[in-house]
Design a protein around this nucleic acid. Structure first.
Length: 578
RNA sequence: CGGGGCGUAGCGUAGCCUGGUAGCGCGCUUGUUUCGGGUACAAGAGGUCGUGAGUUCGAAUCUCACCGCCCCGACCA
């Protein structure tokens, strides 16, 4: 490719609406342009990178034996109703109507569609295991698109769906994908690691996310350097000890605490109740039913865990400004800050308590009377807990549950997610088969997603310096950039540049020649900004000695004999490709 | 949806408070110059000042509504 024909609109200045490095570089390097919030056009250079990432994904998926298909972007709402997700995923569904006013859903994912195919076509255990995948545009009605391609209304996803005859077989399929994902992100040049994950609206019981460490990531990951434990903070647990039991004291005793409505205030004089001897009592509304959540005063509730434990579609904190919610507070007898679970809890309320409070006594909690708290509370004795479960958020420094070493927390970008689904979808959409023993069973599914466009941006977020992008060799838009510093057609410099360009092209190398009649500084800056892995510089000075320059992006410049240039470039490429 | 900020040439911005000629840098065009890290000089093109309504003799500037964008939060497969 010739630069003058390639359409690479680089920007010297950063567009005002880009915040994070990778977003700025996407725009500055001329890879994409914004059409509207969360919607981007891939320009030629950006598309080349996208295709290379897709290519890696396809190669590794094919290697596992997965089969590529292509499903419609428009889906009938009926199958979403059948799976139950018409309601549970309603918030992110883009819906359109055709001229007959019939509603359609723009695919955010395709469990329902592929399961419909399986229901019709997979009738025998002999047809499994099988794994179908596709790479296509997905739509999500994001509340707030942001960070360029990271969270967009429309994006490219690779989604795969496996069908197996048993739970054990499904686990084998799951691990095939798990291993393939590791290879895919490695080949993309990304530092990445899998973490245990919550399953969210997708459902299922076993799940990992693939994370790329980055300060700008939207996820927090808890990890242990000693034993390798790693989990999304939404899922993570630690080996932190339960609340130390004390000698069982006298009966719970009410005492006045006028105006004290925070853990912090109660921990100060004259009350001086340390936060770790307090019980925080929170009211939530789970599918319109009230719910009490008890958690230790010095702990933070993890709402993802709460949603998972309740199994409810919608869980939200009760709000005193909401009249229906206010009635719930009134039935308890107090407003937030004086709430407790010892007395006045209506019998039909669910009380969820965090495991860390198990067996705790000598605790202080709200008395369900404004301006009063209770001390000497023993949870077992004084509170009727419906269900004990893990509800707290892990903090850095807590002991690892596996090896007791201190846990760390870092931010990361989620680029892939694998789920073991069980029979959730196959049962609802009747994807059953005849087993070897003649019985009819629902197939055991897994689903596996990779955010392809997000992966592309994650690469930029991780691979850059002050001058621009530093593309990993396998995903660079062009592997080699030839930079002649004198473009006159009959100059020795240009003749050599053209010759090297032709030879590398003939060898199948993705090469671009910067044939612009521009100053050297402009060409160097642009080459660095776009981030080609290898640059071949050809100028009068070095050519006078029969030499050309070889420079790896971000590396040292080396002089090589002009006649060796092609061979040296091929060597560099070979050593970089994995 | 709540809070905050912004909208002036392709990009980045000044002007707005205190109403009266729309300015600068980059980019673009032409010419000269220069030629190893975003050359220099000269000439030039390019603007419904987000949209609509209002106040006023007069609105980029003041008022109201709407639209769009960015950030924080809520949400997130």
């Amino acid at each position: 490719m010739r630069w003058t024909k390639a359409f690479i609109p680089t920007l010297k200045e950063t567009p005002a609406d880009a915040e994070i490095t990778s977003h700025k570089l996407l725009l500055r390097a001329g890879l994409v342009r914004k059409l509207a919030g969360g919607l981007y056009t891939f320009l030629p250079l950006g598309l080349r990178v996208l295709r290379k990432v897709e290519q890696i994904v396809r190669e590794e998926m094919d290697r596992t034996g997965a089969l590529e298909v292509l499903m419609p972007a428009l889906q009938p709402p009926e199958i979403w109703r059948q799976s139950g997700r018409y309601e549970t995923a309603a918030d992110v569904l883009f819906k359109v109507r055709d001229r007959a006013k019939k509603e359609w859903i723009m695919s955010p994912t395709a469990e329902e569609v592929i399961t419909t195919v399986a229901a019709a076509e997979i009738n025998s255990y002999r047809q499994m295991p099988v794994n179908f995948y596709q790479v296509c545009v997905k739509f999500r009605d994001e509340l707030r698109p942001r960070f360029g391609l990271m969270r967009a209304k429309e994006f490219i996803m690779k989604d795969a769906y496996s069908f197996d005859v048993s739970d054990e077989a499904a686990m084998v399929s799951y691990h095939k994908m798990y291993d393939a994902y590791k290879r895919i992100f490695d080949r993309c040049g990304l530092q990445n690691f899998p973490v245990e994950a919550d399953t969210g609206v997708i459902g299922g019981n076993y799940s990992h996310e693939f994370m790329v460490p980055a300060e700008t990531g939207e996820n927090e990951v808890v990890y242990c350097e000693a034993c390798g434990y790693a989990a999304n903070i939404e899922k993570a647990t630690s080996g932190i000890p339960k609340t130390a039991p004390r000698e069982a004291g006298a009966a719970a005793e009410k005492f006045p605490t006028p105006g004290v409505v925070t853990i912090d205030a109660l921990s100060k004089a004259p009350y001086s109740v340390p936060a770790n001897r307090q019980i925080k009592t929170l009211v939530f509304i789970a599918d319109s039913k009230p719910l009490l959540v008890l958690i230790r005063g010095d702990d933070q509730l993890n709402e993802t865990k709460l949603v998972a434990r309740t199994g409810a579609v919608q869980v939200r904190p009760a709000d005193v400004k909401n009249e229906a919610d206010l009635a719930h507070f009134k039935s308890l007898g107090a407003m937030p800050g004086s709430l407790g679970a010892v007395a006045n809890v209506p019998s039909d309320w669910t009380v969820l308590a965090d495991d860390r409070l198990h067996g705790a006594n000598d605790m202080t909690t709200g008395a369900n009377e404004d301006g009063f708290h209770l001390r000497n509370v023993s949870i077992e004795r004084d509170i009727k807990v419906t269900k004990w479960c893990d509800l707290r958020t892990v903090s850095a420094g807590e002991p690892c549950a596996k090896c007791a070493k201190a846990l760390k927390i870092r931010r990361a970008i989620e680029v892939g997610h694998v789920f073991k689904l069980g029979t959730k979808y196959s049962e609802k959409l009747n994807a059953t088969f005849l087993a070897e023993d003649g019985s009819r069973k629902a197939s055991f599914m897994g689903c596996y997603g990779i955010g392809v466009t997000r992966t592309l941006q994650a690469i930029i977020e991780q691979c850059n310096d002050k001058d621009g992008i530093i593309w990993p060799t396998l995903v660079a838009p062009y592997t080699v950039c030839i930079t002649p510093l004198m473009v006159g057609a009959d100059t020795a410099v240009m003749k050599l540049a053209e010759q090297i360009y032709a030879e590398l092209s003939a060898k199948g190398v993705d090469v671009i020649i910067d044939d612009r009649d521009d100053r050297p500084g402009v060409k160097f800056k642009d080459a660095d900004l776009v981030g080609f892995p290898i640059r071949v510089g050809i100028g009068e000075k070095s050519l006078a000695n029969g030499e050309v320059e070889l420079k790896r992006r971000g590396g040292q410049l080396v002089l090589v004999k002009a006649e060796d240039a092609v061979a040296k470039v091929l060597e560099l490429i070979a050593s970089a490709s994995n």
